[in-house]
């Protein structure tokens, strides 16, 4: 019988070297995320129907959904969501734009860095919710104080990520720009800002989440419409089905914002592998 390589390797004193590499490499698996959601909600619904989860403790998903449908039918959904989204967008955009300006000046000018970094460190940890009563005095009980809460909440983290991003831009690229006689403005616009963009966008993800948290807090004071106001009202009436519907709305808002920033990252950072 001719000797095949397999029979050879089975001979005495020969063994296959055991594989011990692999792993530690996360890969995308489609649908699993959605399945977790579906399974959890189904389990919850089942638990409520069997009476295993008391109505008092946690209303069934179907009841929360009914509350949500009520919102849609009465036309209040649009009023709440549009009020919230308007506050969120104005507050977040103005906080981010101001944060970008201040963060860039800290990144570019030593004087701004020396003067502003300690100030930012002192102001960043102050919970903006604690300042809400003051904001109401300064900016009025209407939209002003709500937008201001979100603005200040996003302003400080944006500053920190922007100047961190500027600091991390490859100095060799900047020297290269100087050695080719590029103007200062060109270096900032074509080398520093694109180089800091990855950090700026991941900062935007964080500041957007902070903005949603602050939105709800701000809407709990003196707001007629808004998801936060809806949740507060539901809570004080012990209408837990509405409360769950409101929380689910917030969660969807968060998912949408995250998805939009993911799109922006794909568009602006397509040069990365």
């Amino acid at each position: 019988m001719p000797k095949t390589p397999t029979s050879q390797s089975k001979s005495a004193n020969a063994e296959t070297v055991a594989f011990r590499g692999g792993g530690f490499a996360p890969r995308p698996i489609g649908l699993v995320g959605a399945m977790v959601f579906v399974f959890l909600i189904a389990f919850w619904e089942w638990g409520s129907r069997v009476g295993w989860i008391s109505q008092l403790v946690l209303p069934a998903p179907s009841e929360a959904f009914a509350a949500f449908q009520e919102l849609v039918v009465s036309g209040l959904l649009w009023k709440h969501v549009s009020a919230s989204v308007t506050r969120l967008v104005t507050g977040w955009i103005s906080g981010t734009v101001l944060g970008l300006l201040v963060g860039l000046s800290i990144g570019l000018f030593s004087l701004a860095r020396a003067g502003l970094v300690p100030l930012v460190s002192a102001m960043f940890p102050i919970p903006k919710i604690a300042m809400l009563p003051l904001f109401i005095i300064w900016f009025g009980i209407g939209e002003g104080s709500k937008v201001a809460t979100i603005l200040f909440g996003t302003f400080f983290p944006t500053i920190i990520t922007v100047y961190g991003g500027v600091d991390n831009v490859d100095r060799n690229l900047i020297r290269m720009g100087q050695s080719f006689g590029l103007t200062w403005f060109s270096i900032v616009r074509k080398i520093i800002i694109p180089g800091a963009l990855p950090a700026i966008l991941s900062g935007a993800r964080i500041s957007a989440s902070i903005a949603i948290i602050l939105l709800v807090a701000a809407e709990m004071i003196g707001a007629e419409f808004g998801i936060g106001a809806y949740i507060l009202l539901a809570g004080s009436l012990m209408a837990t089905d509405q409360l769950i519907a409101g929380v689910a709305l917030l969660s969807m808002l968060g998912l949408t914002v995250g998805w939009l920033i993911g799109k922006a990252e794909k568009y602006f950072l397509n040069w990365r592998a």
Binding site: N172, R175, M176, S179, F180, G181, P194, W271, R272
Partner: peptide, 15 residues
Amino acid sequence: NPLTYIFQDFALLPW
């Protein structure tokens, strides 16, 4: 640009 460098790390803008 009379004096022009060529760098060891290429210094290309990745974007």
